[in-house]
Amino acid sequence: MDLSVTGAFIYFTIPVFGGIPITQTTVSSFLVAVGLIVLSLVIGRKLKKRPDGWQVLVEKGVGMLYDMVEQTMGKHNLRWAPLIGTVFLSSLCGSLIGLTGFLRSSTADLSCVMVWALAVSAICWYNGIKYNGFFGWLKGFTKPIAVMTPMNVISEIAQPVSMAFRHFGNVAGGGVITGILYLALSMLSAKILGLIAKSGVAVAIMLLALGIALLLYRKLKHSKRKLTLILGVLSAVLGLFGLLEVTGVLKGVPVLSFGIPALLSCYFDLFSGFVQAYVFTLLTMVYIGNSCPEPEQGAQE
C-alpha cells in the first residue's frame, strides 16, 4: 500500500533553543488565530445601535455562548465565557481549515490539541488551589476515602488525555480514512479502465453504444425500467471513460475517485469538526465549572 500517512510537515526550524520546528500545524493555527482576531476587530470597530448584517449574526452567537456558559457553569462563572468562546472557535476553525486543501487542519495534530487540554487542566488545578489552598486541594484527592487516592489521581491525569485524544483521533482518523478511500477508488478505476483500455477501442465504443441504447429504450414494463436505467447509465459512463482512457485523453486519471470521498469528508470534516468542537468546549466548561464553586460555598470550605 503506498498510502503515506504523515504528521505535520516541518517547514523550517528556528535555530534557537535547540531548534524550534515550524510545522504545518503552527502555520494553520497561527492563521486561524490571526484570522479570528482580524475578524473580531473589524466587526467590533463599527458597532451600531441598530445592528445589521454581520453584527446581528455575531450578537446572536455571543448571546448563545453566554447562555450556554451560564447554564453549564453557573452565573458566577460568566467571566470564563471569552475563554470558552475562544476554545470553541479555534477548535472549529482549526478543524475546518483543513478543507482549504493546501493547509493542514491544526487539530489533526496531537501537539495542538494536547496543549489545549493541558491548559484546561492547569486552569482547573489553579482554581482548585486558589479556592481550597494547596493542601486543601491535595486533600481533595482523598475525598471519599483515602483508598480512593490513586483512582482520583488517575482520573485527574485521564481528563486531559481523553479530551485531547478524542478530538485528535476524530479529526486525524477521519483524514486517514478519507486518504485510504481515495487510494482504494483510484486502484479500482485503474483496474476497470485498464481492463477496457486493454481490450481495445471497439469494446469501449460498443459499451458506450449499449449504454445509450439502454437509456433510450422506453417500451419496457415499469419493473424492468429501473434496472435498464441503472445498467444504461453504468455502461454509458464506463464506455465513455474507457474511450477517453484508450484514446489517451484521460491517461491514468483516477476517474472513479471524484465525488465519492467528498461525501465521506462531509461527515468527517464538517459534522465531526462541529461535534468535536462542541464536545471539547462543553467538557472545558464542565471541568472549569467544577473547579470554581459558588462564591458563598468557596467562603465556607
Partner: peptide, 24 residues
Amino acid sequence: MIMGCAIAETTGIYSLLIAFLILF
C-alpha cells in the same frame, strides 16, 4: 444525545488510533 454519543465514541477512537499506529 449527540454530545453523549461523541463521548461514548472515545474508546472506539482510541482503538482506531491504535489500529493506525499498528498499520502505519
